[in-house]
Amino acid sequence: MQQTVAAAEFLAACALSRVDAVGGFARDGLLSSQEVFTQQLVTGLSNGMIIALIAIGYTMVYGIIELINFAHGDLCMLGAYFALTVVGALGVDQWAGTGGIMGLVLVLVGTAAFCGSLNWSINRLAYRPLRKASKLSLLVSAIGASFILVNLGLFWGGLPMDVFADGTSSAAPKAFPALVSAAPAAQIGDVIYSRTDLLVLCVTLPLMVALTYLVRFTKLGKAMRAVAQNPTGASLMGIDVERVIGASFFIGGSLGGFATVVYSLYNQTVSFQMGYRMGMDAFIAAVLGGIGNLPGAVLGGILIGVIRSMSDGYLEARWTNTVVFGILILILVFRPSGLLGAKLREKV
């Protein structure tokens, strides 16, 4: 009996201390340096996992047709607008309990399908006709696609919907409703593991596992690896190269779609300009890990996330970009093909 009371008291104390620590800074003690470090690591990992998911889209396309798909970040941006539209159309207020989870899954899958199809269409319309042209034309075409997507986003933000502030200012950043609350899922000491952190993990990890399975163990994956190695050879073996390229665009795009929903839920802001930063971070991550290499993109993404977080936390925030690019340059000097990149594959 005494034990039960003690346990109850302990639980109550835990609950109270949690409220205390979260509401203002009521606790006297500051965060210990170890707690600060752990918290920065959690933030870095969450940001890094999102970056990694987007970086996969870059690296898949590069691995197969050696194109740096500059439209990828902006594709993710449009995905965020699509997700916000769906959330707005479904009505935000009814999102609770099982219905909420179902709604979330619906938004995730819907956005992934949207981004995948859009990426596939961009490939079909803007890149496929240039397959025989020089790599440079392809790159310019990608930059053009990026501009078109940015302006579509600008237009989309002006739709007369409640979630777009009735379209009064199309270019303004929009608040993405907090469907997953930022409340702590767990708290150890003063380190908060928020539900959004958990969400990032729950969405990104299974996707990465699924992608690995797809590339390693399925027929399509085998075909993708074959096309990456040698498109001509692959076509001689009876592989429909264009279909495989299309599939890669679809898969890369839909991973970007998942990432952008998680990003929007994590940051709760969408803006037509966010694609640039998303794309830039992910591109650097892909290069850092070795562009064309899938595990490399994941490693690069997590590294970039953690480096950013640590630099924000321990240096001044204004040095963060300098630190990230400094490390990128150092790694490229000593390992020109990135951390996990193949030795040297001259393809250009």
């Binding site: 918290q39 920065q40 940001n47 971070d281 640590m310 925030a317």
Partner: peptide, 15 residues
């Protein structure tokens, strides 16, 4: 501290 006005979030700064 000066922030990066284009960053996607400021969670590290908040810590």
């Amino acid at each position: 501290e000066g922030i990066d006005a284009k960053a996607s979030n400021y969670r590290s700064l908040v810590t």
